[in-house]
Design a binder for these strands. Structure first.
Lengths: 197, 197
DNA sequence: CTTGCCTATGCAACAAGTTGCATAGAAAGC
DNA sequence: GCTTTCTATGCAACTTGTTGCATAGGCAAG
């Protein structure tokens, strides 16, 4: 399971608590993998019971104690084994594309707001990634030269940036298509319900 | 659940059996949604029991009978409701990106074969999509003009094409990065294991 | 001084997705 | 005749992922 390995990688990059991991999954790791805190706590518990992780109780001032997890040798070995196994190329699960094809049986114009909302979210993600890239890799405060780990983090981030740019351009294409269909439907007799089914 | 709606859309585009749906999910619908035949049969059964679909037994020559499903009014209404609800913008689950970041704690060069394999798969998918585009939308045998449903199918396919092109370009970037790191590691004392952890 | 937010962890129930297996007729190759 | 492949459907068990809720201390705003 890749969540196990995503957690191992994140803890190798920097040990931390379940809560901290959950926030990393909303940020950098979340560029390419999502997980809720529930999933994370459950997997941390299992990995620890399997000996892949070690825990350390860390008392904190002004906030609840946390359990800081670090990767133990068996965890590192398990990650290494996984890295040498081939995996299936990923496939998409894109709800919005289902909606777009479904719009042929409803009113395509009604999707415009939804697509614009997605456009905004992806633009926000792109801006966030670009800020991070400047801060960590390409800006004046970035380390020079980058070490191997940083180069690899950067190439993954470039993938996220490319993905968001591609998605934004595609959503523009979708919007143009929906607008064209709306005006076409407006000209046809019977309005939006006159589409072929 | 989007699988329900993906099945409804596919059956509205053309009624068919579970087996036929499974093959569509390996092809066109599979550009943006995947499902195994197990999932499909289970959902078909549930949607039928809920009244969203109707079944018709179709005897066939030279092969087993099939059950042909069509969308009933309640199914169409359920799809319409879903189309008017907002959905969350999708997020990625990209195992390969986890591996790439994980490679910092192992040997980056060992990933090269894997990345090249993914590159080939995505190139194959791109070629397949381009063939389909020519056949159905842009070639001499394509209908002119396209109706609304075809325009929407085309814009979704263009999304798949853009995704594959973006992915292939990114995998080239990843390969270049891995090659650079390999030669750099070769120059450093201690070889690949001399990476910072 | 109460309400809401942030850190921090977790259980329980449910929904969705995967894997392995089973059945069965017909066609195609050896 | 035997094996493999393709069509066609399905059960059972298991793993993953989601949702709702619960606890609990501290902090900040009003």
């Amino acid at each position: 399971m890749a969540l196990d390995h995503a957690i191992l990688v994140s803890l190798l990059e920097k040990p931390g608590s379940g809560y901290e991991l959950a926030r990393r999954f909303e940020r950098s790791i979340g560029y390419f993998w999502t997980a809720t805190h529930q999933q994370i706590y459950r997997v941390l518990k299992r990995l620890e019971s399997e000996g892949a992780l070690t825990v350390r109780d860390v008392p904190q001032r002004g906030r609840p104690d946390k359990k800081e997890y670090s990767v133990a040798d068996p965890g590192r070995a398990a990650l290494s084994r996984w890295l040498h196994e081939p995996i299936e190329p990923e496939s998409l699960r894109h709800d919005l594309a289902v909606k777009i094809r479904g719009a042929a049986f409803d009113d395509p114009a009604a999707l415009i707001d939804e697509v614009e909302r997605h456009h905004q979210v992806h633009s926000g993600r792109l801006a966030h990634y670009l800020t991070g890239e400047l801060r960590d890799f390409t800006g004046p405060d970035a380390p020079v030269p980058l070490d191997a780990g940083q180069e690899l983090q950067h190439v993954v981030l470039r993938g996220g940036i490319a993905y968001e740019r591609m998605t934004i351009a595609w959503l523009d294409d979708v919007l143009a298509t929906l607008h064209t269909l709306s005006s076409r439907a407006g000209l046809a007799v019977g309005g939006p319900s006159a589409h072929s089914a």
